[in-house]
Design a protein around this nucleic acid. Structure first.
Lengths: 234, 234
DNA sequence: CAGGTTTTCGCTCGATAGGCGATAACTAGG
DNA sequence: CCTAGTTATCGCCTATCGAGCGAAAACCTG
């Protein structure tokens, strides 16, 4: 007797499904995305997001984690969240493929060993990308920038410990504009997003006062209730 | 000669894909979700989100729009955005089905003709729901509540014109707590989310000063840059 | 016109973002 | 050891925005 499946059979149309990852990280002071150069048609020589198919035993998150393991050590990805699912009929010229993209973040201090066809690419100077990957990248950057403001998501871009100057450099790279160190410190500490440690950094060659070493309080995403009209009464 | 598809064939595994809609609206002062009672196994007599399969000619958004047309007039849905894609292997006991859910919002003044098995259900008093639909509903409510604070998404819950008292009732229902009319007016007008018209409402039976009639400035989603650390320099 | 009801405005307060200059804490070189 | 240069941090000030409350406005009914 075959496995008893109760009820009417499922008769929804099926489609090949792929998972993609927009892996962002700050490299040399610039926000970069991990791309690999396609060696085959279609879109040969264009740059594509890492990803691939979904095995029957895998959920989407497990699938993208597995695909990323070939490019970046899984432990290097400090944050991973689902972005969006695209369904344009001709987004892949060979067949209709649905694609679910994830946003991944890698701290600036980790340097994964990358395959030869895979490089970090500054998001403000992208090459021609394959398929609709450009849209996914735009969405990922927009979400990162938004969440930097009202969550602690910076923990996934920063080393375990850092000075305010280093953190400001990270934020400048990720956000694309300058910001004051004074205010950055105050806001993030008041929100209990970062905490000072009792250690200080060694000054550079040119001297200067040693900087307090900070760390992120939490390493899971938390939102810092920022809002106004919608605050519950005390 | 068959249609020439360049390059290697796609060999990603395929899965049945369904679209679901969490349609929210304020009914009688409570935030409600549109559910229909399943007549068949599996999960017979449990309450399910409207939705269905995706035709080869449809994108996901078109598919959910089509399915909703059978329940709610399409023009009644003032806002529709993608929520998330779920992929738990046994989320449907019959077969592995991937599901992409959308958040839909219906203004409180429209009363769609609903099929007999379909009813509005208060989100704070849900019945047993089918499959993993409970998670989608939770996610939809959370997103609505968050976006009420930093976007103009209220336009999709409110009638074309309204008084502040009516708007406050809507916000109270959607957010689940009381808020002051004074502040609500100030904040939303300062952000140019709502504007007063030159008309006023007729007082109720018991008298009282006539209320200014307001309207939402835009009927597309716009975010009101609320944030602090990440504000670009002037 | 008096009393009741509802809306709206003005005033005030508190919390937070944001900027700037002064001071602290170091290095290097005389 | 002292001075000049460099970098980090703190204190003080301001502006903006949320939030609450009471007074006044604008309507009704009797």
């Amino acid at each position: 007797m075959p496995a008893a499946k109760k009820g009417d059979p499922v008769n929804f149309p099926s489609y090949p499904h792929e998972v993609l990852a927009v892996v962002l990280s700050v490299r040399d002071g610039r926000l970069c995305v991990l791309l690999w150069r396609r060696g085959r048609s279609p879109h040969r020589d264009r740059w594509a997001l890492p990803g691939g198919g979904v095995e029957p035993t895998e959920r989407l998150r497990e699938a993208i984690t597995g695909h990323l393991a070939a490019k970046v050590d899984v432990r290097d990805v400090a944050h991973l969240e689902q972005l969006a699912t695209h369904s344009a009929i001709d987004r892949d010229p060979r067949a209709r493929v649905l694609a679910t993209a994830y946003l991944g973040l890698v701290p600036s201090d980790v340097r994964p060993n990358l395959p030869t066809d895979t490089v970090w690419h500054p998001v403000d100077d992208l090459p021609r990308t394959a398929f609709d990957h450009h849209y996914f990248i735009d969405a990922a950057v927009a979400r990162l920038r938004a969440k930097l403001s009202y969550t602690n998501i910076g923990f996934a871009l920063a080393p375990p410990e850092f000075t305010i100057a280093e953190l400001r450099d990270l934020f400048r790279a990720a956000l694309g504009y300058e910001l004051g160190a004074t205010n950055l410190t105050r806001v993030l500490t008041r929100r209990h997003v970062i905490d000072p440690t009792d250690r200080t950094s060694r000054p550079g060659q040119s001297g200067g006062r040693p900087a307090t070493v900070y760390k992120f309080v939490a390493h899971e995403l938390t939102v810092t209730d920022p809002f106004a009209v919608l605050r519950p009464p005390r």
